[in-house]
Design a binder for these strands. Structure first.
Length: 307
DNA sequence: AAAATCCGCAACCGCCGCGTT
DNA sequence: TAACGCGGCGGTTGCGGATTT
């Protein structure tokens, strides 16, 4: 299907809208409604293409648009819907009154996505990232295995960081109270040097089974941007800025430790609240916690280099 | 104080689906 | 049935303000 360009570039203005242009568009739509966008600019006396007018109206001038910061509830709704729908911004926007698809898309890309990445969660799949798991297991296995065996198999950047970390802090693993119940590479086949990407693990709960078997299992997490921990809800909770960390039940904390061993499991609530364990950004202390992902990012591991 | 860098967001671009001719 | 035209969508860009060096 052939089609002509949306607008001929000649003579049509582009770039930011002036207040006068905005007023013209508002006046015209109030009088005539927004019917034919292609003919609207001409009729309204605007030197713009119809597409530009439609976008300006839909994303900025529409009277029902809500301005200002996203509320925790809105943020949680976006997360939930994005997990279900993916980048269907218009569908997501339809369920959040007063917010446009463009606004939600921008908010996702500039805020939520980054938060998830810092948590080690893939913002596309909403699941833990493989590269973090890889480095975790490299560190776990380092005392027994020669790194050179991994070189063809692992992202060189990840391998490099793992090597660096170990060379800087040989006591790291011993100090981190790592639970050794799970080893991704425990079935590593030295002969053909093909390690399993993720091995089934001996988790103590169905939640963790779901977590590590995430390729095949329905994702069990729900998001909770509220401050309070809700017992019995399998969520991961990233607390918004300025919010305090709420400790999950100890049992869940301890059983999760096998998942991320480079991201040191929290062995005590006091260390969790230590300033040194927080990731800071944007002059704002943001902390993320969960009854699932209750871990600390070690100071020596600058996670931001991976994201 | 100035330059460099970062970041958020409005706006643009190209593609697609669907109704119309 | 194919071509056309429009509206809509998602990805991307680039400007301008904020922050850091």
């Amino acid at each position: 299907m052939g089609r002509t360009p949306c607008c001929e570039k000649n003579g049509l203005k582009r770039g930011p809208w002036t207040p006068e242009e905005d007023q013209k568009l508002i006046d015209y739509i109030h009088k005539n409604g927004c019917g034919n966008w292609r003919t609207l600019p001409k009729n309204a006396g605007l030197p713009r293409c119809g597409k530009s007018c439609r976008l300006r109206w839909a994303n900025y001038l529409r009277p029902d648009i809500k301005r200002g910061k996203f509320s925790p509830l809105e943020e949680e709704t976006i997360l939930q819907l994005h997990r279900l729908l993916g980048n269907k911004w218009s569908t997501i926007a339809a369920r959040i009154p007063g917010r446009t698809d463009n606004e939600i898309k921008n908010y996702w890309n500039t805020h939520i996505r980054k938060k998830l990445l810092r948590m080690g969660i893939d913002p596309v799949t909403h699941r833990p990232r493989f590269d973090l798991l890889e480095i975790s297991e490299i560190l776990n296995s380092s005392s027994q295995m020669n790194f050179s065996k991994f070189q063809p198999l692992v992202n060189p950047n990840v391998l490099g960081l793992a090597t660096c970390l170990l060379s800087q802090n040989q006591d790291f693993l011993l100090q981190s109270n790592v639970v050794q119940e799970t080893r991704v590479f425990e079935n590593f086949n030295v002969e053909n040097q093909i390690p399993p990407l993720i091995q089934p693990c001996h988790f103590q709960s169905q939640i963790h089974q779901d977590f590590i078997g995430f390729n095949a299992m329905p994702f069990p997490f729900t998001y909770n941007t509220e401050e309070n921990y809700v017992p019995g809800v399998t969520n991961y909770d990233y607390c918004g800025s300025g919010q305090s960390i709420v400790d999950p039940p100890p049992s869940e904390t301890s059983t999760f430790q096998s998942g991320f061993s480079n991201i040191s499991p929290s062995s005590s609530p006091t260390t969790l609240h230590s300033n040194s364990t927080y990731i800071t950004e944007d002059n704002e202390r943001e902390s993320y916690c969960s009854n699932m992902f209750n871990f600390q990012i070690l100071d020596i591991l600058d996670i931001n280099e991976f994201v």
